[in-house]
Design a binder for these strands. Structure first.
Length: 167
DNA sequence: GCCAACGTTGGC
DNA sequence: GCCAACGTTGGC
């Protein structure tokens, strides 16, 4: 059996917390994606995010918010160590035998030629179904269709004005 | 800083 | 199991 094609994802991060530039500056351009504290996102990380999958790196609460880079999953799910540590991410119910929260390790591939801002994503008819374009969608780990992934990369190579002219 | 949307918690 | 209260996310 051939391996299945890589899946595509969008990971949200507040740049003040951990930006794509921070990822590029990290050792081996890698980081463990810790701090996910939502069960739906946790389940995706645990069950569906695989080594070799591609990630759109999205800056939320940014100026502007949007997709800024591409990363690759290099290690599949492992227990999030911050759940065992004191602090904001501590999880009293977690034990090493039965961890509650999981994370994956990603590695930066390339920054996009320019940020594809949220309003551009919303302006593209091909991205109408994309999770991040849906009102009220707060999920920090979202599946992305292959065609959507390609469209975001295509938008990133165009001038913003050209994107606005698209019909 | 505001607030809409959504998730979680806890009383009952 | 219902649902009100509360907390968080994240665009604006």
């Amino acid at each position: 059996m051939p391996k299945s094609a890589p899946h595509h994802w969008l990971f949200k991060s507040e740049p003040e917390e951990f930006s794509f530039a921070d990822l590029l500056a990290a050792p081996k351009k890698r980081t463990f994606w810790n701090g996910v504290r939502n069960y739906q996102a946790r389940n995706l990380l645990r069950d569906d995010v695989k080594v070799g999958d591609l990630v759109l790196y999205y800056h939320s609460n940014a100026e502007p918010s949007g997709v800024v880079g591409v990363a690759e999953v290099v290690e599949s799910a492992a227990p999030d160590p911050t759940q065992f540590e004191p602090g904001d991410y501590h999880e009293p119910r977690a034990t090493h035998e039965a961890p509650v929260w999981m994370g994956v390790t990603i590695q930066a591939l390339e920054p996009l030629p320019r940020t594809v801002a949220l309003d551009e994503l919303k302006a593209s008819p091909k991205l109408a179904q994309m999770g991040v374009c849906q009102r009220g969608n707060r999920l920090s780990i979202q599946p992305v269709a292959p065609a959507e992934f390609a469209e975001v990369l295509r938008l990133a190579k165009r001038k913003p004005s050209a994107a606005a002219d698209a019909s």
